[in-house]
Nucleic acid binder design. Structure first.
Lengths: 400, 400
DNA sequence: AGGCTTATGTTCAAGGCCTAAACAAACCTG
DNA sequence: CAGGTTTGTTTAGGCCTTGAACATAAGCCT
């Protein structure tokens, strides 16, 4: 009961981006001002919330004392190991990124323990900085590009890293210097979707359901239904790249035929435009996306045609997802956020034609608000959100 | 708090298919025996639960008094208006169908108010019978074959009934004699999935996620994620029939091309086998499914080929859904339950080849346990389940 | 400036519900 | 028939919410 009400009160403070008063919380939640006061006291005592000074009322009355999320309260660490970089960040309760490290390189042929050791070292580094800033670490979440049994299980397969059947969290935990915090792991696409979910704050109760396309080398996606990630039975949901676009289409590396990846993957786009596919997207050279964007900007006809057919294929796959799930929106993230100017039109056109309900209510299709680092941000956010969703256990942890 | 615990206790009684004791509830929920006792007293007082006599303990000790769901407590009415029949049933708390009426006929060219008036009349009929059996009606749910804004909204489109933009609940409510109970409406495919969900009782906490294919004339589906129906933004989820199987395939009635319905719909199967498509599936004549089953039993080569290609197309679409959602199982319901012997193999084969995660953990693919009346049962079940999920409001309703 | 109005936040008694422990009931075993 | 065991109830205690009164701190009006 207390547990539930603490979460209720904290959510009001978290969702509002301006300071709220105890009275606001009371009227928004239906609780008494007395109860709201008591809840807020507990939250302040646990270091989750701080008072931000009096705010004058418009037409008289005692000024309210504003409440905001503490910037010295619990913080979450996001860790992302990807093909051409390792990134780490620390996010505070309010969602502000307080520290970050990124290290480029080609991690494809590096043994997994080595890559994870590097990630652990960066993590230890930001953790020290965070502690110096007065933050208390609530946990860390690892984003990986592959199939993984979220939130604790082993990694099954990360094709682009060349990893397979590996208990990544155990390896990470064994690294020296790693701060002793709870660890979780999930697919980078899921975390990227989570980041998008919280990028544009909305009403507390507003249902938000969307699919976030998250393509770099493969094409993944994260599905958010009513504000919650759909992880699936094993945490393997969102494998958009291997949706069948045409059953007799070109062979795919997965063993199937006609997968979306063969039409709309970055390699496929470059191939279709008659350009050589660079190996990976290393920071040193010119990345695949850059290459495509540059060429598209010159209005190169074969590139524009390649993007049109990629957008069309993506639209076919997304129309399928929308027919199945009746979502509010589709968000193009990752590489597709950059390519949106050239593909959005075709994606929308295909969705308009193939989605049964489109004539009544067409879903929104838009590019992501975030940059390429959506996954790290989402990972860190997942930790922070865990505290916001269940403040009672944090209160207990601090008390002990 | 009380609200939550009442639901907790009732769920224990509902999920167990043998009588449970107050002590069982206490140990299963972690509450005290005293609290469990108090909760049970409230449930018994509200007529939701009855004691079923003492049950001896195996190794001594005081015998427990068994608790089961009351068969004279609240009951739900399910109403289904479909192309060739109108069906109504009353289900009690335990999930037993206590009364039912079905009326055949061809409702396609009948004006909507007339069909709904007929449904209302049948409903009033079973409601009287139910009251005579000592049941109290908690509500009624209407299943319709089309896009509808669940759970209260108007019907947008029911192509096979020829209905469009109609507030079905308002029409139904205006019918004379209709019992004054809360009304809801949803797609028949959603209700059929719900019926399947509760057909095979499982552990209370066990996550159950599956897609239930529900084809009669069109191909719909209901998606259950972690034991809850996914209704989507407007309640339009599960439109499996218009998933694109091949982007350049045959034109579909929906305006798109290459929809699953054009490959695996009953009409499509008959066409592919060289048989004329009967109009609808009227009870008087031989239905489309019957026709297909009969022909397939004679091992007619063109029919077998038609079923193979239907199964393959269905497999392609289902593999897409599974790649997106990572479900536990796919259940073939409606007409496809009957056709399972001839198509299951091809559906599984296609899923095995196209589902990225299949090598690690292949989802179950099976025929539905229920007959064609899954939708009515599911509709009635939705009402019953509403009471089980929120007993507190029923307790309040009875008290008032 | 002083009183009135308005709104916030706190204090305090009352009640609801859960917990823990003791107690009564009912059956089996030897 | 006594001892053991398990169920269900009773009772005292404590946590948390409620509702109302009260204190605080402004703006507004004369």
């Amino acid at each position: 009961m207390r547990e539930h009400n603490l979460a209720l009160a904290l959510r009001e403070i978290a969702f509002a981006h301006t300071p709220v008063s105890r009275a606001d919380i009371a009227s928004a939640t239906g609780l008494t001002r007395a109860t709201a006061s008591s809840l807020v006291d507990a939250l302040v005592g646990a270091g989750l919330v701080v008072e931000s000074g009096p705010t004058a009322r418009p037409r008289g009355g005692r000024p309210a004392t504003g409440l905001v999320l503490s910037s010295t309260g619990p913080a979450g660490i996001g860790i992302e190991v990807n093909v051409d970089y390792v990134a780490v960040c620390v996010m505070d309760l309010a969602g502000v990124v307080r520290h970050r490290r990124i290290e480029g390189g080609d991690w494809r042929d590096v043994p997994a323990p080595e890559a994870l050791a590097r990630a652990a070292s960066l993590t230890a580094d930001v953790a020290r900085s965070a502690r110096r800033s007065g933050l208390r670490l609530a946990g860390a979440a690892l984003a990986v590009p592959g199939l993984v049994q979220a939130p604790y299980g082993p990694l099954q397969l990360a094709p682009n890293l060349g990893w397979q059947d590996l208990d990544v969290l155990a390896v990470l935990r064994d690294a020296p210097d790693l701060p002793a915090v709870p660890l979780t792991v999930d697919n980078e696409a899921n975390f990227a979707a989570l980041a998008e979910l919280y990028a544009a704050p909305a009403e507390p109760g507003a249902p938000r359901s969307f699919l976030h396309v998250s393509g770099e080398i493969g094409i993944g996606s994260g599905i958010v239904l009513n504000g919650a990630l759909v992880r699936g039975r094993h945490g393997w949901s969102g494998e958009l790249g291997h949706l069948t676009v045409s059953p007799d289409g070109p062979d795919c590396t997965c063993g199937s035929r006609g997968c979306l990846e063969q039409y709309a993957g970055l390699d496929a786009i470059l191939r279709a435009a008659g350009l050589p596919a660079p190996r990976g997207t290393s920071l040193g050279g010119v990345s695949a996306v850059e290459r495509i964007v540059e060429t598209a900007k010159t209005a190169d006809p074969s590139m524009l045609a390649a993007l049109e057919s990629a957008g069309t294929a993506l639209g076919v796959a997304l129309a399928g997802a929308l027919n199945l799930l009746d979502l509010d929106a589709v968000v193009l993230g990752g590489a597709y956020a950059r390519l949106a100017p050239w593909i959005l039109e075709f994606v929308e056109q295909e969705i308009g034609g193939r989605l049964l309900s489109a004539p009544w209510s067409a879903p929104q299709v838009r590019a992501s608000l975030l940059q390429a680092d959506a996954a790290v941000l989402g990972a860190a956010r997942s930790v922070v959100q865990g505290v916001v969703d269940d403040p009672a256990s944090w209160v207990a942890r601090v008390g002990a």
